[in-house]
Computed example of a mutant assay.
Amino acid sequence: MPVVTGQSQWNGTFKEGTGTLSTTTSGTIREAPYTYASRFEGAPGAIPEELLVTGHAGCYNHALANIAFKAGASVESISTTAQLTMGTDDQGSDGHGYSVEGIHFVVVADIPGITDDQFVELAEQARALCSISKILTVPITLDASRITTSPATEEEA
Score class of each variant (00 low, 15 high):
Met1Ile: 12
Pro2Ser: 15
Val3Met: 09
Gln9Ala: 11
Gln9Met: 11
Asn11Met: 05
Asn11Gly: 01
Asn11Tyr: 02
Thr13Leu: 06
Thr13Arg: 03
Thr20Tyr: 03
Leu21Arg: 00
Ser22Arg: 05
Thr24Leu: 07
Ser26Ala: 10
Ser26Gln: 04
Gly27Asp: 03
Thr28His: 11
Glu31Tyr: 03
Glu31Ser: 09
Tyr34Met: 07
Thr35Pro: 01
Thr35Ile: 07
Tyr36Pro: 00
Ala37Arg: 06
Ser38Met: 03
Arg39Val: 12
Arg39Phe: 05
Arg39Ile: 11
Phe40Gly: 01
Phe40Ala: 05
Gly42Leu: 07
Ala43Gly: 07
Ala43Cys: 07
Pro44Trp: 01
Gly45Glu: 03
Ala46Lys: 01
Ala46His: 08
Pro48His: 05
Glu49Asn: 02
Glu49Gln: 12
Glu49His: 11
Leu52Ser: 00
Val53Cys: 06
Val53Gln: 01
His56Phe: 06
Ala57Met: 07
Cys59Pro: 00
Cys59Lys: 01
Tyr60Trp: 06
His62Gly: 02
His62Leu: 15
Ala63Lys: 10
Asn66Gly: 10
Asn66Val: 14
Lys70Arg: 15
Ala71Asn: 13
Ala71Ser: 12
Gly72Gln: 05
Gly72His: 05
Gly72Met: 09
Ala73His: 09
Ser74Pro: 00
Glu76Pro: 00
Ile78Tyr: 05
Thr80Ala: 12
Thr80Leu: 08
Ala82Ser: 09
Ala82Asp: 06
Gln83Pro: 00
Thr85Glu: 13
Thr85Cys: 00
Met86His: 09
Asp89Gly: 12
Asp90Gln: 13
Gly92Pro: 03
Ser93Arg: 10
Ser93Glu: 14
Asp94Arg: 12
Gly95Ala: 10
Gly97Lys: 08
Gly97Arg: 06
Tyr98Phe: 15
Ser99Trp: 06
Val100Asp: 00
Val100Pro: 00
Glu101Trp: 02
Gly102His: 08
Ile103Pro: 01
Ile103Gly: 00
Val107Arg: 07
Ala109Arg: 07
Ala109Ile: 08
Asp110Glu: 10
Pro112Lys: 04
Pro112Arg: 06
Gly113Phe: 05
Gly113Trp: 04
Asp116Arg: 09
Asp117Val: 13
Gln118Ala: 10
Phe119Thr: 05
Val120His: 12
Val120Cys: 03
Glu121Phe: 12
Ala123Gly: 05
Ala126Pro: 01
Ala126Trp: 09
Ala126Cys: 09
Ala128Met: 13
Ile132Ser: 03
Lys134Leu: 10
Ile135Lys: 07
Ile135Ala: 11
Leu136Gln: 04
Thr137Phe: 02
Thr137Gly: 04
Val138Ser: 04
Pro139Trp: 02
Pro139Ser: 04
Ile140Cys: 05
Ile140Met: 09
Arg146Met: 15
Ile147Ser: 12
Ile147Val: 15
Thr148Ser: 14
Thr148Ile: 13
Thr149Gly: 14
Ser150Tyr: 02
Ser150Lys: 15
Thr153Arg: 11
Glu154Arg: 09
Glu156His: 04
Glu156Gln: 14
Ala157Phe: 14
